[in-house]
């Protein structure tokens, strides 16, 4: 399904997607603080603007005006490059998530997704793999032992849970018979949403996604009471804002991936086809609510518990899911 689009249309789409994801990030941060407040029986921020809706702007302004220092023992080039790498890999992931099928504008046909690759799911893994470098280089380039230890721990945790996440997704790929995200959504539109076919895969994916984005209960490497702040210790001001943005955008992209793989993507009953992206946004917000709820409720895992859980519990469960799905698909659904 290759639609030939003029270049200017692709540029407009790219700009729109990037702008959308950054705006969603700002309001997710606000929503998280308000939700955390409500979970803890208090109001969230409500001084800036009507219900605190100017809070993200206030935060960004504050962070921009902070001093942008570089520690003396730091490796200057890598210190500056690390947050850029983190945010670039995070935002690029939004290009793969399909927001709808094709539409038409001024006589030109366009597709409501950035691009449809035959290896779509793998590209998201490649991007998250490259995103690790933002953390590792940031931790090492700070010239600070605590940052290095925090970065090493973070990297080890992310690599472990990425394996489990990859295995949990293979079940969906086997049922949809394709790695392309648009094909997976189309397959779900023709049958049922895959959360019903792959409950174990969904559970493993959610846990692994929480670990991949360094959220509580897996946020030991960057929690305030552990190792100062991990790889973020020496970062202040705008660079810290970029790292925080990278983490939230990662969360949004993984929510988009989960919504596309398990909840049917932009599939939904009543809306017309050109508004189908609203369904995808609703599902992404369901996932984000789940992330925030977990953060408000669960305590943090210790590092060895975290690693043990990832390798000894999550990986065998994902493998079991893979084997059972392979047997079922191989026996009952081989008709082509």
């Amino acid at each position: 399904m290759s639609v030939h689009e003029p270049f200017w249309l692709m540029l407009i789409k790219a700009g729109l997607l990037a702008f959308t994801v950054i705006t969603i990030f700002a309001y997710v941060m606000l929503w998280e603080r308000k939700l955390l407040g409500r979970f803890q029986a208090r109001y969230g921020p409500n001084r800036t603007g009507l219900v605190g809706y100017m809070q993200p702007l206030a935060d960004v302004v504050k962070l921009i005006f902070k001093e942008d220092f570089v520690p003396r023992g730091a490796n200057k080039v890598l210190f500056h490059v690390a947050p850029v790498m983190a945010i670039a890999c995070a935002v690029t992931g939004i290009a793969i998530i399909p927001f709808g099928t094709t539409g038409e504008l001024f006589g030109h046909e366009f597709t409501m997704y950035g691009t449809d690759l035959s290896v779509g799911v793998l590209v998201l893994f490649a991007l998250s793999g490259l995103g690790f470098y933002g953390m590792i280089l940031g931790g090492w380039a700070s010239g600070n032992k605590y940052s290095l230890l925090g970065a090493a721990r973070t990297a080890a945790q992310l690599v472990s849970y990425e394996v489990a996440m990859g295995l949990s997704i293979i079940g969906v790929i086997m049922i949809a018979q394709s790695l392309s995200l648009v094909d997976i959504v189309n397959a779900q539109m023709n049958s049922v949403w895959y959360i019903l076919c792959q409950p174990l895969g969904f559970a493993v994916f959610v846990v692994a996604a929480v670990a991949e984005t360094n959220r509580t209960p897996f946020d030991l490497p960057e929690a305030e009471s552990e190792l100062v702040a991990g790889y973020l210790t020496e970062y202040g001001g705008l660079k810290f804002a970029i790292f925080a943005m990278a983490e939230y955008v990662n969360m949004i992209v993984l929510s988009g991936l989960g919504a596309t793989l398990f909840l049917g993507g932009f599939d939904g009953p009543w809306l017309p086809q050109w508004l189908s992206w609203l369904w995808l946004l609703a599902k992404i917000f369901v996932f984000l609510f789940l992330f925030i709820w977990l953060r408000a409720t669960l305590p943090r895992l210790r590092y060895d518990q975290l690693m043990r859980f990832g390798w000894k519990v999550l990986l065998p469960l994902a493998t079991l899911n893979l084997i059972v799905t392979a047997i079922v698909v191989g026996i009952f659904f081989q008709n082509d």
Binding site: S118, V119, L122, V123, F125, A126, G129, L130, F132
Partner: peptide, 12 residues
């Protein structure tokens, strides 16, 4: 596919 595997395995 080889490009994606290259990034995931080698670079990642």
């Amino acid at each position: 596919f080889a490009a994606a595997i290259q990034v995931i395995v080698y670079a990642g």
